[in-house]
Design a protein around this nucleic acid. Structure first.
Length: 215
DNA sequence: GGATCGATCGGCT
DNA sequence: GCCGATCGATCCG
């Protein structure tokens, strides 16, 4: 039986962007039917509280993102486009609001099972996007709110490798809508040379289109 | 390789 | 009703 070094609550307590940086290189472990599916985090995005106009927390603690206001280290999982699940790690300063969207993993353990779940794609596409990641690890909203610091649970974070700053690149977050200043924040962090990083697809937008008012 | 488009659900306006 | 923190099939070059 493998031993895991779970992440600590203080590791996830702090400015959400700092926690995002810390999460790169760490492992996400899924326990399912006695099997283990494991990947190293290679891409993630920081989302803040109501002051971040791109954040689900915008609607306040009674909204769908209530989990972002709650204790650090829990999972916040939502359904996007009625089709795909997305996994966030709740992370913020004490008494704050925020979460980290996990966008891509480098699969390490359980590749066969992941391929079945994903439908036979090549390894570097297994978890190269937030929806793909959840599908590869069989994550959906039934896991919303689970404690990601519990190494006996169905889904948790474990220590991986520490990455040097040179390996980490920052860029604008993918697919978000909000105030131009917030959209421009380079709060997507990823391992530059890793083939598992998502394409970073984004709605087509030319620079004249940046006004937020519609028609 | 890159652009376009439909799928499909929940929580808002 | 509307529209997303997306993906993959399909079409074009």
């Amino acid at each position: 039986m493998l031993q895991f070094d779970p992440l600590t609550r203080e590791c996830l307590t702090g400015e959400t962007l700092d926690v995002t940086r810390r999460l790169l290189g760490q492992r996400l472990v899924r326990r399912i039917d006695g099997a283990l599916l494991i990947g190293r985090i290679v891409e993630a995005e920081a989302y803040g509280g109501p002051e971040d106009s791109t954040s689900h927390a915008l609607r306040g603690p009674a909204g769908r993102a209530a989990g972002m206001f709650g204790p650090v280290g829990r999972a916040y999982i939502y359904l996007i486009y009625g089709v795909y699940s997305c996994l966030n790690v709740v992370a913020h300063p004490a008494g704050g609001v925020g979460a980290v969207l996990l966008r891509a993993l480098a699969p390490e353990v359980g590749l066969e099972r992941m391929r079945v779940l994903r439908g036979g794609v090549v390894p570097h596409l297994l978890a190269s996007g937030p929806g793909r990641l959840c599908k590869a690890l069989s994550i959906d909203r039934s896991l919303d709110g689970v404690d990601l610091l519990d190494p006996d649970g169905p889904l948790f974070l474990a220590a991986g490798v520490d990455l040097p700053d040179e390996a980490v690149t920052a860029g604008p977050r993918v697919g978000v809508v909000g105030r131009p200043g917030d959209i421009a924040h380079p709060w997507r962090l990823y391992v530059a040379d890793d083939p598992n990083v998502s394409p970073g697809r984004r709605p087509k937008m030319n620079h004249k289109d940046t006004k937020t008012t519609k028609s």
